[in-house]
Nucleic acid binder design. Structure first.
Lengths: 266, 266
DNA sequence: GAAGAATACATGTCAATACAGGTTTATGGA
DNA sequence: TCCATAAACCTGTATTGACATGTATTCTTC
């Protein structure tokens, strides 16, 4: 395990990282069989259980596939070994070599509507509200509204124009313990959005309502994004541990839920 | 573990299911601390490792939260204990007591475009193509195009009007080994879609392109859905082990990728 | 040479034990 | 009563050992 013996990490984490590194460096190449659990245990001087735990994580991440009775293999499709993390707006831009920017349109405390309280999962009178215009190389792409519980009021004293909530909130450190609830709609750009996004009113626009909560049920925040998909596309990759919960409206005759916020309140 | 001793299941599965049942029946209620791992091991007459494995699955599914040094607790937010599976169109309708129906608009083998071959991840000349109109209580909501590798040609001899691909394809049995790649766009209803969906041309419509593949890199199928969100809304819940890979178009100046299929080819 | 049996090997499952480190509760002194 | 300490308890991590089951290879037999 080389000189990388950071004492803070667990054994199975160190084993996992070393195997991961060997895959990255091509020591184990796509399609190759990697040494058996028994051999790895001997090589790293750990128990087989520890090796199995490391391999389990690699299987979860898509780097390794196992075949009972045969062995463990490096995933032959290198592209399928997706990074195991969430990319924020800022991160995605950086990865593509374009410059993200944010203009804070509004940041403050507002009275909570009944719907906000419900979405945030707790009775509350006030919420922290952000409205941001996100641009790529100066071209406006997304209008985003964020709604956070009052315990995040401290955010208002920070400069949020360059950062994402993803990297700011300590609650979001361990993504594996976060539930994302997303609802997707298509709607048309109204005059307010058009002037912010510098586009034609009546253009189609993607409307995403997202709610983040911990697996223990605590709400973190909710947001609402209007994404001009002609300028910025939203892609999501996910492993099968999610549920779609489509809901037909036609049957109940109920109209579409309106936006979380009264747009005229600015 | 009652009389439910199905020999086919593993021990940790039986333990997990029994704890799950006790949570469902209210023996362990939300917020309650469930017996310690040591106690559970003694009660079920299994080792602590087996109990931990059962609990691990329950934590993954969101039913249980653990606190180091303190104990394991039933997730206080019952709503957060989401079912650990994907809901198909048919399933979601059934759950809501409305009647789903599908009209097959087209089903057959077509010549593969370069883009289809790329999306399906393998060189191919032909693909199986389905076009379906999905309705809720007779109201058309979704136009769906499916593209499958030729090994699924046998589907064409089945009656697909009542079922979903999800429950039909054996490849989709273990959802935890499936990658979903989704891309969301908003666009406008054209004349073809309008006549199928019985709606106004120019209405905003949600356009989802989805690709399913195994963690070992094998493509299963790709599809393209046009969802009238005013009649049927798409919600997605997911745990944090996914990635968003938004891509800015503004920078490169590249135009939006066109549909997978030439719409006029019908 | 081909088919089937025997063998070696790899992963899957499970048990029993040990210790580290965090949390809760009980104890005891100021 | 309040606070600090100690003990009990619980989860996290790791080891060793064992057996079951599926896969691949080799050997034997026809």
């Amino acid at each position: 395990m080389d000189g990388d013996t950071t004492g803070a990490l667990t054994l199975h984490d160190r084993v996992r990282m070393d195997i991961e590194r060997k895959i990255d460096e091509g020591v184990y190449r796509p399609g190759d069989r990697i040494p058996s659990e028994h051999q790895l245990a001997e090589r790293y001087a750990v128990s087989r259980v520890t090796v199995r735990r490391a391999l389990e994580a690699l299987v979860q991440a898509g780097h390794v596939v196992k075949r009972k009775g045969a062995g463990s293999y490096v995933n032959p499709d290198a592209g399928a070994a997706r990074p195991y993390r969430v990319g924020s707006f800022s991160e995605n831009c950086a990865r593509r070599g374009v410059t993200p920017s944010s203009r804070i349109v509004f940041a403050g405390v507002v009275e909570a509507t009944a719907e906000m309280a419900e979405v945030l999962g707790e009775p509350c009178d006030e919420v922290v509200r952000l409205e941001r215009l996100r641009c790529v190389d100066g071209v406006p792409c997304i209008v985003e509204f964020d709604y956070l519980p009052m315990r995040f009021e401290y955010l208002l004293s920070l400069d949020l124009s360059g950062v994402s909530l993803f990297t700011t909130l300590p609650e979001l450190e361990d993504m594996s313990k976060i539930w994302f609830d997303d609802q997707f709609d298509a709607c048309l750009v109204d005059d307010d959005l058009a002037s912010l996004l510098e586009c034609q009113p009546g253009s189609p626009i993607l409307h995403v309502r997202e709610r983040l909560s911990t697996t223990s049920g605590e709400s973190i925040y909710a947001n609402e994004q209007f994404i001009l998909t002609s300028r910025y596309s939203r892609e999501v990759s996910s492993k099968g541990n999610f549920i779609r919960c489509d809901s037909p409206y036609a049957a109940s005759g109920a109209s579409h839920a309106s936006h979380l916020e009264a747009r005229g309140a600015n």
